[in-house]
Amino acid sequence: MTVVAVTVTALLTVASGLTLVRIIRGPSILDRAVATDVLLAIIVAAIATEAAYSRDATALPVLVVLAVLGFVGSVSVARFAVRRDPE
């Protein structure tokens, strides 16, 4: 299981690094919102992998909070982008 944990950690690290590049470069705010959603999904995957590796369910409520947070975040960014656009 250690090999699996190291592999998953490496894959998720590379993925979150590439996503961060898109968040920094992303030409519009919607690109950044989409990339932030992906980053949040990667964080959820990392926390779930840690819980699976150590057989410890302490972090599982954090997953529920993060799932709610991603939805509220991208929806409010989309609303904000509509309102700001014509000015």
Binding site: V4, L11, V14, A15, G17, L18, T19
Partner: peptide, 14 residues
Amino acid sequence: IAGALLSLAAGVAL
């Protein structure tokens, strides 16, 4: 591992 690979694919695609 499959889930992590899908995350990596999304990172590359972004």
